[in-house]
Design a binder for these strands. Structure first.
Length: 644
RNA sequence: CGCGGAGUAGAGCAGCCUGGUAGCUCGUCGGGCUCAUAACCCGGAGGCCGUGUGGUUCAAAUCCCACCUCCGCAACCA
């Protein structure tokens, strides 16, 4: 009986087609899953899509289709990308799957019965004109922080989950399982930011939109999308609170959830607590991997630096992209992707080191022995180091993969390939070939090379499956198990090698970049489209007339402590009393840039306290791009001028 | 003074926990070789390891302190 191993990725939100940064996770998980399978584990590897929530309802509405139609389309795109990356998930779950939805409802019933869910016990201060709820701490002098009017205690109907009840239990679990949150730095973040200050009960229902799983016993509510999504890890195994499925018994608890570092909070706090409430064991480990950045920036449509996995695979081949992602991503820091570096790694690692090694070795065997693999009858001292390197690589790779150091692991495999290249220089087969008496030695050298390359191919299997197969075919063997790496000599003398075919043809850097450049003409068009969609609904004149715009002069300006993004401005708005406004422009402007300048402010905006500063109004600024904001300065109008 | 991480050759990174003459990949320069995809192998140049002529030590990239810069989390862009 093989030991079970359950590995998951986060399920992808079906808001839009994922970019290569989003796709890194599934490749990472796939490489781990493949390796575990080779190690003999009974692996269950799950991925899928997270399809509910307000955002999706809005996107669908904007696209003029139903939410279901919308998610069907995007889920299809996501699945296509997983497939084009050659990932071997065992299950692709969708949160709109019938059985998931039913199971989630059952689970909720159980939580409710258990008394961990309470309805509308949440009391808030309600401001009628603002239609908003506030907590005690949000109130300003006991009044509405938005408009300053009286608030009254009211209840909004919502369901809450008693997080706080499990706080201690969670702390104990984290304490006694030091590897649960990984890597370490993230663990500190979670503990210091969320757990130590005390857990708040979590609002687990929504009633302002419809696209979600109906709350059991209350039609007006849908289940909060995160809760729905997290449960996929057990509903995918057919979890049923009343009678557990065979799959669940076998695979739960998960060995590892592979997720992005941004959603660790949900996976290391909410998720464990939900499981505790259900009386189920907790996942053994949550690994928050870093992000893949495009150049120095996060990938975003408006920056025009989005790169998609399928485009890359079409251009460079799946394995080249898998290799890039897995080898280039640092273990605990964000990685970067650019076309230049892809081409660089492609040429130097895949074409030169690996591809050329296989090619020259196979070519020599064909040339000198008509393809027939010779028995290694003439060993020499110098062979030993090569063999030792080959034999030692697997255990080191395995060790590194246990702690998700995938890039280091791959690099060990390439070290072996480099050792082979060096061995060729050390033994100089072409020189041996000139001397008839050294035939046996020549045959031995080539045998050692072929066998070492077999080690490379087998070790490459989890990372570059297609390439691995191609190499094995060329070196004339099909022995590809990890066990076969316990000893040196699985290649059979007398067998024939295949035809030497380049695995990766070197790319011309400039030509390739030019081609890519040419294939990306539609960036501006997409930008335009997006802007149109984001426009607000039409308003009537009366609505506009409610906004009081005024010219004001900045008389003083300083940064606000504890707030990185805010500047505190003191303004002359034409009245006698100076006005204070907090504005989120610290990233783009320093106080000197603003003092003395005239700006346009919204003068009748309700005051609001931000990081301890009461802000009266806002100043107009334009978001040129996600990374650039420009304040609208005016000249030629005195402070106090009203605009209409 | 919110929490955490990073600052090492032109670029990207390792080393730091368990102090002992600074390492890898790419690039660059020189040499070797010709089996191979102008590939492969060897060697050189290039770093006062963010700053403090700071502390501990026989010895600090590594431990301690202060400061600077960048990033993430939290707060937050009215």
């Amino acid at each position: 009986m093989n030991k079970p191993y359950y590995i998951t990725t986060a399920i992808a939100y079906t808001s839009r087609k994922p970019h290569i940064g989003n796709s890194y996770e599934i490749v990472l998980a796939d490489a781990l899953a493949r390796f575990k399978r080779m190690q003999g584990y009974d692996v269950f590897f799950q991925t899928g899509t997270d399809e509910h929530g307000q955002k999706i309802e809005e996107y669908a509405a904007a696209a003029g289709i139903s939410p279901k139609e919308y998610v069907d389309k995007v889920a299809g795109e996501i699945k296509d990308i997983c497939d084009c990356l050659n990932t071997t998930y065992d299950k692709f779950i969708r949160t709109t799957d019938k059985d998931h939805e039913e199971s989630v409802q059952k689970i909720f019933k159980k939580l409710i019965d258990k008394g961990d869910v309470y309805k509308s016990a949440y009391e808030g201060w309600y401001c009628v004109p603002c239609e908003s709820f506030f907590t005690d701490s949000q109130l300003v002098d006991g009044k509405c922080p938005d408009c300053g009017r009286e608030v009254r205690k009211e209840q909004e109907e919502a369901y809450f989950f008693k997080m706080s009840k499990y706080q201690k239990q969670l702390e104990e679990y984290i304490e006694s399982n030091p590897d649960f949150i990984y890597p370490e730095s993230r663990k500190k973040e979670m503990i210091n930011n969320f757990i130590k200050p005390g857990l708040q009960d979590l609002c687990i229902s929504r009633s302002t939109f419809k696209w979600g799983i109906p709350f059991p016993g209350d039609e007006k509510h849908v289940i909060y999308v995160w809760v729905d999504a997290l449960l996929n890890y057990i509903t995918g195994l057919g979890y049923d609170p009343d009678n557990q499925s065979e799959m669940y018994k076998k695979y739960w608890p998960a060995d590892v959830h592979i997720i992005g570092k941004d959603i660790l909070r949900f996976h290391t706090i909410y998720w464990p607590i939900m499981l505790m409430a259900l009386g189920e064991p907790l996942p053994k480990q949550v690994f928050g991997h870093p992000w893949l950045l495009s150049g120095n920036d996060k990938m975003s449509k408006s920056k025009g630096n989005v790169i998609y996995a399928d485009d890359l695979c079409n251009r460079f081949g799946v394995d080249a992209i898998r290799y890039y992602l897995l080898s280039e991503m640092p273990h605990a820091q964000d990685g970067t992707i650019t076309y230049e570096t892809i081409i660089e790694r492609f040429n130097s690692d895949l074409a030169n080191t690996l591809g050329n090694l296989v090619n020259r070795t196979v070519a020599m065997n064909n040339k000198y022995f008509d393809g027939v693999i010779q028995a290694p009858t003439a060993a020499e001292e110098i062979d030993e180091d090569l063999k030792a390197t080959a034999l030692g690589t697997l255990s080191n790779v395995a060790k590194l993969l246990d702690t998700y150091k995938v890039s280091d692991a791959i690099s060990l495999v390439f070290d072996l390939a480099k050792r082979c290249n060096k061995y060729i220089d050390e033994t100089m087969p072409w020189a041996l070939a000139k001397d008839e008496e050294k035939k046996a030695r020549l045959g031995t050298v080539l045998y050692n090379l072929l066998e070492s390359i077999r080690f490379v191919a087998v070790l490459l299997k989890p990372f570059m499956p297609e390439t691995s197969d191609k190499i094995l075919e060329q070196i004339g063997t099909d022995v590809n198990t990890l066990e076969s790496l316990d000893s040196f000599g699985a290649i059979k003398a007398g067998d024939k090698v295949g035809v030497a075919t380049p695995l990766f043809s070197r790319l011309d850097v400039e030509k390739t970049l030019a081609e890519i450049e040419a294939s990306l003409p539609d960036l501006n068009e997409e930008k335009e489209e997006e802007k149109e969609i984001e426009g607000l609904a039409e308003i009537v004149y009366d609505d506009f007339a409610k906004v009081e715009l005024r010219v004001a002069e900045v008389t003083d300006c300083q940064p606000i402590k504890r707030a990185k993004k805010l500047l505190q401005l003191t303004l002359n708005d034409g009245t006698k009393t100076p006005r204070t406004i907090a504005s989120g422009i610290a990233k783009w402007y320093s106080p000197e840039d603003l003092i003395g300048k005239k700006v346009i402010i919204v003068a009748n905006l309700a005051p609001r306290t931000l990081c301890g500063v009461e802000s009266h109004g806002m100043l107009l600024a334009g978001e040129v791009s996600e990374e650039d904001v420009k304040v609208a300065f005016v000249e030629g109008m005195p402070a106090g001028t009203q605009l209409s």
